[in-house]
């Protein structure tokens, strides 16, 4: 299995001299199964340079797993060149929207409206296949098993576990650990806590033992209180989850958009000091645009 990070930034692209090393593109991760099947996790602006790398493979078949439909995870989709070329097969997977009651098939139609984009959906030449997913249903892509799980974000967000040939990866998408909405002295506190604990256990069980986890680490613990409810995690919350789930390697991503390369390394190093590695701990890394990991 191989992964390559094409976009690691959260919320909005951040080109410029202070983000050259870690990169300014929004979320996009290329996953290659051992038989070279291409799975793409999210279609942030990082999918554009990924698309450039695929031109010699046409006609191709690929599978885009969308964690959720916020802009920074779909912004590159209209620029995904394989969509424009006949005989390519592009499969798009994601959650349906409970508010509009529409499936993932409206994603491109919404983006490619005449007023907002020069090309309309009907003009795309590739064969596009949509797959609306639900939490309790695993799907197969080639020989891989994909397990979607509901995370916590201001819109439905699936984390995806991918298992293939004994290797595994989990991507959170955007995720903020749930917090108890009640105060400790409210009578509802303990009941709410127990529902939260059940959900957290379900998450830990789903992730259990993956080789690689890629997780939303937007904030430091100092920054978090003023961002509570925005739907993002901290270095510490992701490290804790990785430890509980006995993950092999944790890649911290969704870098906060105002964070420079230097600031990013500083906050990561502070997180490492707070969580010194024990023999059984996962290995911790910062996700970086262009970084490839194979195992």
């Amino acid at each position: 299995m191989k992964i390559k990070f094409w976009g690691v930034r959260g919320s909005i692209p951040t080109p410029g001299p202070t983000t050259v090393r870690y990169g300014g593109n929004t979320t996009c991760i290329e996953v290659r199964l051992d038989d070279d099947t291409l799975i793409i996790l999210d279609a942030g602006t990082g999918i554009f340079p990924l698309a450039q790398s695929l031109l010699s493979d046409f006609p191709l078949s690929c599978h885009i797993l969308n964690t959720h439909t916020h802009w920074d995870h779909i912004q590159g989709l209209p620029f995904f060149i394989p969509l424009f070329v006949a005989d390519n097969n592009v499969h798009i997977y994601g959650a349906a929207d409970p508010i509009s009651q529409k499936g993932i098939d409206e994603i491109l139609g919404t983006q490619l409206q005449y007023r907002f984009f020069p090309i309309r959906k009907v003009e795309l030449k590739a064969n596009i296949h949509y797959h609306s997913l639900t939490e309790s249903h695993r799907i197969k892509i080639a020989d891989a098993t994909i397990t979607p799980i509901m995370m916590n974000h201001p819109v439905i967000n699936f984390g995806y576990r991918i298992d293939c040939y004994g290797k595994s990866i989990f991507f959170t998408g955007d995720h903020e650990p749930s917090y108890n909405i009640y105060d400790a002295n409210d009578e509802e506190y303990s009941e709410y806590q127990s529902i939260m604990d059940d959900k957290q256990q379900h998450l830990i069980d789903t992730i259990q033992g993956v080789d690689v986890m890629i997780a939303d680490c937007s904030y430091t613990p100092e920054e978090y209180p003023s961002k509570r409810g925005w739907g993002h995690g901290t270095y510490d919350s992701s490290i804790e989850l990785a430890q509980q789930a006995n993950v092999g390697k944790l890649y911290c991503t969704h870098h906060e958009p105002t964070r420079s390369d230097q600031a990013l390394e500083d906050v990561f190093s502070q997180a490492m000091q707070r969580h010194p590695r024990q023999p059984q701990s996962p290995e911790y890394f910062l996700a970086q645009e262009g970084l490839e990991v194979s195992w």
Binding site: P98, I99, M150, N152, H153, P154, V155, I156, S178, I181, E188, E191, Y192, I195, M196, K199, G229, G231
Partner: peptide, 16 residues
């Protein structure tokens, strides 16, 4: 409803 809030998140429940 509290159960729904934990599973779906505040914003989704609010919009529902």
């Amino acid at each position: 409803i509290r159960h729904a809030l934990v599973y779906l998140g505040l914003n989704t429940v609010k919009n529902l």
